[in-house]
Simulated scan of single mutants.
Amino acid sequence: MYLVIAFIAGGLFGAGLFISGMTDTTKVQGWLDVFGNWDPTLAFVMGGAMIPMAIAWLIRNRRVTSLVGTPLPPPPSTKIDGRLVTGSIMFGIGWGLAGLCPGPAIASLTYGGPGLYVFVAAMLAGMIFAPALRARLDRPVPAE
């Protein structure tokens, strides 16, 4: 049952990304170009995504397990630190340059072309190597 629900949720998410235009790199870059030829339509997509997510968090605060019985993860941290800021900047730079973020990139795999495959390969490499880099950066600096 868990896999069926995951498949349906993933399919709905991917379809929503495609229908909303989030998989169209020129549309995304047009939305990010606030000082040029700005396309505000994706603001409605993001605003529309925030409403069900806010409802989901309200429901999550009253539940311990998901509908299929698995434990729900704890709410995310509200702490703003260097890791969050650095990650946000890197995400924004990648999103602006490529016009894609992870969700739309995966949703576009069947028709994206060579540029998309390079993006997904780089994204996966980052996901694989980031924990090792994070561990190295978090090591205390020896005192002289």
Rank of each mutant, 00 (worst) to 15 (best):
G112S: 07
L133S: 09
A98M: 06
G99L: 10
L124E: 05
G113V: 10
G96P: 07
A121N: 05
M127I: 10
P104H: 05
Y117Q: 10
L137H: 00
P114W: 14
W95H: 04
G94C: 12
P102K: 11
Y111I: 04
L116S: 05
S108G: 00
Y111C: 02
L124Q: 02
P131H: 09
A125D: 11
A122S: 07
L109I: 15
A125S: 13
A121H: 05
G126F: 02
T110M: 14
P142V: 14
R139K: 15
L109A: 12
V118G: 12
M127H: 01
I106G: 00
R134N: 04
G112D: 09
A135R: 14
A132W: 10
A122V: 15
P102I: 10
F119P: 03
Y117S: 14
G115N: 11
G96I: 13
R136G: 01
G112K: 07
I128E: 08
L109N: 07
G96E: 03
L133Q: 01
G94Q: 06
L116I: 15
G115T: 09
L97I: 14
D138M: 03
G113M: 13
V141L: 12
A135E: 09
A130I: 05
S108Y: 03
A121M: 10
D138N: 11
G126Y: 01
A125G: 13
A121L: 15
A132Y: 11
A107I: 08
P142I: 15
A98V: 08
A98K: 02
G113Y: 09
M127Q: 00
G112P: 06
P104L: 02
F129L: 10
A125N: 04
I106H: 01
W95T: 07
P140H: 04
G94S: 13
G99E: 15
F129Y: 13
G112A: 10
M127F: 09
G96M: 14
L100H: 08
G112R: 05
V141N: 06
G103H: 04
A98G: 06
P140K: 08
G94P: 06
Y117F: 15
L97P: 02
G126C: 01
M123N: 00
M127E: 04
P142M: 14
A132R: 09
A121K: 06
P114Q: 13
A132V: 11
